[in-house]
Design a protein around this nucleic acid. Structure first.
Lengths: 341, 341
DNA sequence: TCCAAACTTTGAATCGTTTCATTGTTACGA
DNA sequence: TCGTAACAATGAAACGATTCAAAGTTTGGA
């Protein structure tokens, strides 16, 4: 209804010039105590709130950073988002969050929106290969940092996690606790993350001459898919003694089907390790060992890399790759008296 | 680096007036085909992108709606957010998302930010009682709709879910499937939602003279808390034949501890029903019956109520209360030949 | 050929803030 | 009393898009 108060209204009400009000807001040291108080009172009485659009128009840029993730519902991204928000707050910037939901159309809409908002920069976990679009952004002076995706380092900075190392960690842990007949359960290896984790696991297994690794395909990355694989194993017999699942949901499914038999025990008969360390991992029937990704570091570092690009004019990009972390719980406790290492 | 192109640059490049460029963008029908094409070419060549700050300054308001939720990681809110975004898109507005994380400070920061952004309106699931703050917003002409919280209808519109009805649904379902010795497992009843669900359950139990309801307090709303309660029950003996948990995590915990004994069967010996219908409910060892909240409807309706307030000058508020829905799965299958209803 | 109506295009004014050159004020030593 | 340095306050210009009254152009009937 009644248009909100402007800096001009405040100036009139306090009987000062608009420039003075602006100084009170932005450079309090330049203003005398008396004036400051008078202006402050006017601000309070009128309930004045800065109009960010006008600020931004004058400044030529906003104080916001765009962040587009593939799925806010995914704990991995939720955690990244939170860390990014906190890191951005330290720089005095706010984060505009967009959820593409793995949908290129939504992703594109958010990029449009953020461009119109003149965000300072963009953090994005892209749906597909949108380097063309990002190249354009770069030309327009919108620096971009790729999240959870390795980038052409001559063009972009990026933060990602070394999935090969994660796979190695998981398999190595199974081997270290005495297991030798390993199985890898994962969705289609066309998913880069799955392929990398498998590759890392193979690398570990090759270090032990007497160890083997069987690859079991799963129909998706869900609890139900894991349960099918588990049921298949139980029916088939000839069980592995250590199972590495490409994510925790699969692992929980496998755990359900194995424990449902009431004859197989975890970890005594079969050790089980997942990936992602979701909240549920610790509360599984048998607490699930897992590989934790440093999500907070991802979010924080993404903002820091963006800040670097904003500060320097020399376009020097960096690809920061984090190493995931092994989280040991009961599901991989050593089988026999062998030392836990 | 190179300041991005303005509408003036486009006008020069196409040899037309700025007003014409604006018309091409906003009222294409007013512009001749020839001119339109010329302007469009200039736009493409210069890579012109509208400056939203300038638009907004002129328009006096933004085309964004603020949405502050308690926890984006919570599937309940994730779903609400998504629905709100889609509904807002239909109105040509974008949603600015803020995650208060149950923290009043963060919440306040977001309100400040959104006010500076001159959002058209605010949807909020408030941390505590911030009606003072919201009253101020209302005076300043920022309509607010409360989400998942019943509001003073003379002042605000709100969307919420009837937890009493949900509790009734759950308990009634246990009774309908032949159970008579019921137990309610929930965190502190100081949480309104928990208290309401319990109250609804009590209402249902009172309808059956031979039914009883035992209330079991839990230490929080987690899987682990549920497991403690389950373990306690198993140790104690004298088991109920139907358990209603105030949320699915508790129910999954209870399920774990009961099935771990390998002597109790769900649903034959004890039926179990949760609340929220999280993704995991369907993939539990025994698929979990639950109460589903209409999250999409919540998000959509919140936006619609806001739109109503924006359109009419008469401040007429509405409190829309949704009724949750029973989702029957195996965990509450009828105990004995009794008809499933 | 002329006129009026319909259609196009123009460009100055406006939104609210920040910036900054200019003007005004104060304090103090000479 | 004067001069000047330090400090305060002023207000016009600028940012980029939209609006709208006014001016310009086209069309077609008389």
């Amino acid at each position: 209804m009644n248009r909100s108060a402007s800096i001009k209204d405040v100036a009139n009400h306090a009987s000062v010039a608009v420039g003075t009000v602006s100084n009170v807001l932005n450079y309090p040291d330049r203003v005398s105590q008396r004036t400051k108080e008078r202006v402050q009172r006017a601000i309070d009485e009128l309930g004045f709130v800065r109009n960010d659009a006008a600020r931004q128009l004058r400044a030529g840029h906003s104080r916001t950073i765009g962040l587009i993730v593939l799925d806010v519902g995914n704990p991995f991204f939720t955690s990244v988002v939170r860390a990014a928000e906190d890191a951005a707050a330290l720089l005095g910037s706010a984060v505009l969050l967009g959820d593409s939901g793995h949908n290129a159309g939504r992703e594109s809409n958010y990029i449009d929106l953020f461009q119109e908002q003149r965000v300072q920069g963009l953090l994005i976990s892209p749906v597909g290969d949108i380097t063309d679009r990002l190249d354009l952004l770069r030309e327009r002076g919108v620096p971009t940092v790729l999240v959870d995706r390795l980038a052409d380092q001559t063009k972009y900075s990026s933060v990602s996690v070394d999935d090969d190392a994660g796979g190695y960690l998981a398999a190595r842990h199974l081997l270290d606790t005495g297991r030798r007949r390993l199985a890898f359960v994962g969705g289609p290896t066309s998913i880069r993350q799955v392929a990398d984790r498998l590759q890392g696991a193979e690398r570990a297994v090759e270090e032990e001459p007497d160890a083997t690794l069987e690859v079991l395909d799963s129909d998706g990355q869900t609890v139900l898919a894991g349960r099918s694989v588990g049921n298949m194993l139980v029916k088939r017999g000839d069980l592995p003694d250590g199972i590495f699942c490409a994510n925790d949901l699969l692992a929980l499914g496998v755990m359900q089907s194995l424990t449902m038999t009431h004859t197989l025990r975890i970890p005594e008969d079969i050790a089980l390790i997942g990936y992602d360390d979701i909240d549920f991992a610790i509360s599984a029937v048998v607490p699930l060992s897992s590989i934790r990704q440093p999500t907070e570091a991802l979010g924080r570092t993404a903002i820091e890399l963006l800040a670097e690009e904003l500060e320097s004019d020399t376009p020097k990009h960096r690809a920061v790759i984090f190493t995931p972390e092994l989280v040991v719980r009961q599901s991989t406790a050593p089988a026999k008296g062998s030392s836990a290492g």
